[in-house]
């Protein structure tokens, strides 16, 4: 049907689309397909041989917080826990987060930091692309008419990973700055992705390279100066704007603080190998 008609509305959890419909900003003109009722899209699988986790587009945030997934990608579980309220997490999906592609989408920095890939299906087949290419701009993606997000594939990484998010409330708040940090012990790389400080999720190559080369991968420690430098480089990589939610200055500052703190949780300045907090 998607291939034949251009007026189809795809509805996953509804937590974004229904806001627009309720506001009167959007009225479905043709059929609505509730893709979250499609069983394949609501399942996930761990391929141990490949070291990957593949998550159906309509897996909800509540499901992503389940220990079975959380132990494989703890940062995604942490990010999921910050999404809205229990009601939103029961309905909202990872595929919906990608489809909306807000720079404040909580799952997206984790996907970007893990170099996840997105699978899109259409009548002519499927294609897969890196999530960083999928996300084009503010609420703009590389999805083509007739395509449907079916799943996301993430590497299961050996090493510490974490997500942190700032909002002006202790629950149920949109990120005004968010950061995901992943330490890959096998590859001896550090990966950082930022939310709400650019038109889309940003990676920080300079900061990543700096920290990766200054971490003692045997003891999982780093000098305080290097952690500070890491935070500064992350701030430098941000491209925030000022709006009613926050100032650009604060956002830039906040991602640096978050990145430094996350890195410190992974690589203690002096101590033993860092375990997940």
């Amino acid at each position: 049907m998607l291939a034949e008609r251009d007026d189809v509305t795809l509805l996953a959890g509804g937590t974004d689309a229904m806001v627009e419909i309720n506001d009167g900003h959007r009225r479905p003109q043709g059929p609505v397909v509730a893709v979250n009722r499609i069983p394949d899209l609501r399942s996930w699988r761990h391929d141990r041989a490949a070291g990957t986790l593949t998550i159906g587009a309509c897996v909800t945030y509540t499901e992503l917080m389940d220990p079975a997934i959380a132990t494989l990608v703890p940062a995604l579980a942490e990010a999921s826990r910050t999404v809205g309220s229990p009601q939103i997490r029961n309905a909202g999906t990872l595929g919906g987060n990608l489809g909306t592609c807000s720079p404040a989408g909580d799952g997206l920095p984790v996907l970007a930091a893990l170099d996840a890939t997105v699978t899109l299906a259409s009548r002519s087949g499927t294609r897969t692309m890196p999530v960083t290419e999928f996300m084009v701009g503010v609420k703009r993606t590389a999805i083509e008419p007739g395509e449907l997000i079916t799943e996301v594939t993430l590497p299961v990484v050996d090493g510490w990973q974490g997500y942190a998010k700032v909002g002006v409330r202790n629950a149920m708040v949109i990120a005004i700055a968010s950061t995901c940090v992943v330490f890959d012990r096998a590859a001896q790389t550090v990966r950082v992705a930022l939310g709400s400080v650019g038109p889309t999720i940003l990676r920080c190559p300079d900061a990543e390279a700096h920290l990766a080369s200054h971490v003692d991968w045997n003891t999982m420690s780093a000098a305080a100066d290097d952690l500070d430098r890491f935070g500064t480089l992350v701030s430098d990589a941000s491209r925030p704007i000022t709006d009613h939610r926050s100032s650009a200055e604060y956002r830039r500052h906040a991602v640096g603080v978050l990145a430094r703190r996350l890195a410190q949780r992974a690589a203690t300045p002096a101590g033993p190998p860092g375990a997940p907090a």
Binding site: G14, T15, V32, A34, T62, G84, Q87, N90, M172
Partner: peptide, 25 residues
């Protein structure tokens, strides 16, 4: 907008905001 919870109902054993559920779905 799903921000207040006043419309909470249970759909298939899940607590959701009924304002964000398309009824026909």
């Amino acid at each position: 907008q799903g921000e207040c919870g006043s419309c909470s109902v249970i759909v298939d054993d899940e607590l959701v905001c009924s304002c964000l559920v398309m009824a026909a779905s």
